[in-house]
Amino acid sequence: MENSPYVKLSIENHVGYVEFFHPEHNSLPGNVLADLAQTITDAGNNEDVKVIVLKSGGDRTFCAGASFKELININDDATGKVFFSGFANVINAMRKCPKFVIGRIQGKTVGGGVGLAAATDYCMATKFAEIKLSELNIGIGPFVVGPAIERKMGVSAMSQIAMDANSFYSPEWATDKGLFTQVFDTTQDMDEAIKAMAENLCTYNPEAMKEMKTMFWQGTEHWDELLSERAAISGRLVLGEFTKEILKRFK
């Protein structure tokens, strides 16, 4: 079916394009997140892939964050921790990947989607790529994605968008804060720039790029434990009376 969720890897000129899609504005349920983490890991281990591009299907939204349907149905701590570990596993897969990951952000990105963008090594966007951290709106917070966003944008910028949970911030603001490297007027312009950069990176020494990747992510070796702890915080909060009352309105 054309509108079915998917994660796929396509390889072109040694560039591995990892693409995810979900018909609900690319919001990501647990099974799609698990597939995405595994696909990134597999691309990292594939000798034919020298550089990875992370992208999503569709024109308007890069990623709307976690699946609301799954969020509403969490009824115990263990399920909550597993649910919120989904984005943690994707972030950690990108962190540990021995290859550079380039982000392609074609449209709005919310919550966990901002975390995915922040976990790439180099990220390009279009003028439609506004960002928002909306978690506080439902009584939780951006705990799992926080470390990736803070690492990329700094505590000040991360706390600003986390506290101003109703507002979309412009791609120009996100570029100024270090999340995006360039903003393009059209998706076509962005795709041409990503292709050129990715294929140029493929001409460089893979060992040098691997060592650089390790250097870039130095100091994050504890993130397996950290993001797991953060997932547990979100899992606990989502079961609280405050959040349960808010979620009832969405049922």
Score class of each variant (00 low, 15 high):
residue 3 N to S: 14
residue 8 K to R: 14
residue 8 K to T: 05
residue 9 L to Q: 06
residue 9 L to H: 02
residue 11 I to L: 10
residue 11 I to W: 01
residue 15 V to R: 02
residue 18 V to L: 05
residue 18 V to Y: 03
residue 19 E to F: 06
residue 19 E to K: 08
residue 20 F to I: 00
residue 20 F to K: 01
residue 20 F to M: 01
residue 22 H to Y: 09
residue 22 H to W: 02
residue 22 H to L: 01
residue 24 E to S: 15
residue 28 L to I: 11
residue 29 P to G: 13
residue 29 P to N: 12
residue 29 P to S: 11
residue 32 V to I: 15
residue 34 A to K: 13
residue 35 D to H: 15
residue 36 L to M: 08
residue 37 A to K: 08
residue 38 Q to C: 08
residue 43 A to G: 10
residue 44 G to T: 05
residue 44 G to E: 03
residue 47 E to P: 14
residue 50 K to S: 00
residue 52 I to F: 04
residue 53 V to L: 05
residue 56 S to I: 05
residue 57 G to E: 00
residue 59 D to K: 13
residue 63 C to T: 06
residue 64 A to L: 08
residue 68 F to Y: 07
residue 69 K to G: 15
residue 69 K to R: 12
residue 70 E to P: 13
residue 70 E to W: 04
residue 71 L to C: 15
residue 72 I to F: 07
residue 73 N to V: 00
residue 78 A to D: 14
residue 79 T to M: 11
residue 80 G to I: 02
residue 81 K to T: 13
residue 84 F to L: 08
residue 84 F to C: 11
residue 87 F to D: 05
residue 89 N to W: 00
residue 89 N to S: 14
residue 91 I to N: 04
residue 93 A to D: 10
residue 93 A to C: 13
residue 93 A to Y: 07
residue 94 M to L: 13
residue 97 C to I: 01
residue 101 V to W: 03
residue 102 I to M: 08
residue 102 I to L: 15
residue 104 R to G: 01
residue 104 R to S: 08
residue 104 R to H: 02
residue 105 I to N: 11
residue 106 Q to Y: 02
residue 112 G to E: 04
residue 113 G to Q: 03
residue 113 G to I: 03
residue 118 A to V: 06
residue 119 A to N: 06
residue 121 D to I: 08
residue 122 Y to A: 04
residue 123 C to D: 00
residue 123 C to F: 14
residue 126 T to L: 07
residue 128 F to G: 03
residue 129 A to I: 04
residue 133 L to N: 07
residue 133 L to W: 00
residue 137 N to V: 00
residue 137 N to H: 04
residue 137 N to A: 11
residue 139 G to R: 09
residue 141 G to Q: 02
residue 141 G to H: 07
residue 141 G to P: 01
residue 143 F to R: 01
residue 148 A to K: 04
residue 149 I to N: 06
residue 152 K to F: 07
residue 153 M to W: 13
residue 155 V to M: 09
residue 156 S to Q: 09
residue 159 S to H: 09
residue 160 Q to I: 07
residue 166 N to P: 11
residue 166 N to E: 10
residue 166 N to L: 10
residue 167 S to N: 14
residue 171 P to V: 09
residue 177 K to W: 00
residue 179 L to M: 09
residue 180 F to T: 02
residue 181 T to E: 12
residue 184 F to E: 11
residue 184 F to H: 14
residue 188 Q to A: 15
residue 188 Q to W: 00
residue 192 E to Q: 12
residue 194 I to V: 15
residue 195 K to V: 05
residue 195 K to Q: 07
residue 196 A to R: 03
residue 199 E to A: 10
residue 199 E to C: 12
residue 199 E to H: 06
residue 202 C to G: 12
residue 204 Y to H: 06
residue 206 P to E: 10
residue 206 P to Q: 10
residue 207 E to C: 13
residue 208 A to M: 11
residue 211 E to M: 15
residue 218 Q to H: 03
residue 218 Q to A: 14
residue 218 Q to L: 05
residue 220 T to V: 04
residue 226 L to I: 06
residue 227 L to S: 08
residue 230 R to Q: 06
residue 233 I to D: 03
residue 236 R to L: 01
residue 241 E to R: 03
residue 243 T to I: 01
residue 245 E to K: 15
residue 246 I to Y: 04
residue 249 R to P: 01
residue 249 R to V: 00
